[in-house]
Amino acid sequence: MTSSQNYSTLAVLGAGTMGGILVRGLVKAGRPASTIGVTSHTAATREKIAEETGVQAFDDNATAAAWAEVLVLAVKPVKALGVLDEISAALRPGTVVISLCAGLSCALLESHLPAGTPVVRVMPNTPASVGAGMAGVSPGSHAGPEQEGLAVSLMSTVGKAVVLPENLQDAVTAISGSGPAYVFYFVEALVEAGVTQGLSRPLATELAVQTVLGSARLLDETGTHPALAREAVTSPGGTTGAALRAMDEHALRAAIQDAVEACVRRSAELTEAAVRG
């Protein structure tokens, strides 16, 4: 695997939520702040992260692109192609472009860059802010093992990363990219249910959060299939079974399936919106 340290300069175009998370993760992992640059359409955002981390703040994307050997595209998907058009002429030969933009294919991004520019598509998620992210990595037609390894190395500073075919990226978006919101939604509902049953909100929150955290850790560390782990908690005729039957009556599994399918469709729509500009 190629280390991100082999590339002397890296600029994050769009240091908002995910861009900012990656910058902070890289600095925390030991990458020299002087080798990282950031841009943002809001001056206060780029200046704040520069002050917090010691990285360089650039006033415009083209200047950052001319400076960096690696560009992380972290702007909103609908703005991404416009940013690429803006920086294309400024890119130095061999610049690697790593896209964090949901729904935008490598081929589409490549069409707005100089011929032969290596592009790697990445779908991260927000738990990266606490070093527990999950990212799917897909190299474009001009990206080889070196650029693929670079992207994996970068995302591994804030969690885990897996390499997969690009045609699975919409599914990755629906499961891990948007997935934290589903978990937060479930925890929110569980807390409200606890309050309804007489628990204080702080206690209900602590119980729900630790239960989700511990359950995920159990699956991760033991490798137990989720169905088997569920069965281990479910005694015949017991309280857990009653709760699960209620969930089945409300078609929870079908709702989750529908949610994932809706997310996949929306990811495809983002590509269409970006093309239309």
Rank of each mutant, 00 (worst) to 15 (best):
A208F: 07
V97T: 06
V158F: 07
L168T: 12
K28W: 08
T239W: 13
A268E: 15
V209F: 09
A254Y: 06
A62L: 02
L113S: 08
G140S: 01
V78D: 14
P165S: 06
A132H: 01
G30S: 01
R253N: 05
N61P: 01
A181V: 09
G19E: 03
T117P: 03
A216W: 06
H142Y: 11
E231Y: 04
T117F: 08
E272D: 14
L113V: 01
S99H: 03
V137S: 02
E146L: 06
A227Q: 11
V264L: 11
G144I: 03
L109T: 09
E206K: 14
N125D: 09
I98T: 05
V70I: 00
W67C: 01
A193D: 12
Q5Y: 11
V83L: 08
A232I: 00
A174I: 04
A80L: 07
V120S: 07
T240L: 12
T240K: 04
S4G: 10
V12T: 08
P77M: 05
M247W: 11
A89M: 02
A254S: 11
G19A: 11
A246K: 13
A161G: 01
I36F: 09
H112M: 09
G94L: 02
R253F: 03
L100G: 02
L22K: 03
V163K: 07
G179V: 05
G94P: 04
L199F: 14
A274N: 11
A181D: 11
G82W: 00
S3D: 15
V72C: 06
T95E: 02
T63W: 06
D60N: 04
G159Y: 00
T234D: 03
T9D: 10
V78M: 15
N167P: 13
V152Y: 01
A254K: 08
V195G: 00
S153P: 02
T205M: 15
G177E: 03
E51F: 14
I87Y: 11
R121H: 14
T222W: 01
V70K: 00
E231R: 11
L109F: 07
V12R: 02
R46Q: 13
A229H: 05
V183F: 14
Q257K: 05
R24F: 13
A50M: 13
A90T: 04
G223H: 06
E249H: 12
G37D: 12
E261I: 05
L252G: 04
T35H: 15
L228R: 12
A171S: 12
S3M: 05
G277P: 07
D59W: 00
G214A: 10
G194F: 03
L113Y: 09
T117W: 04
V183T: 13
V23C: 10
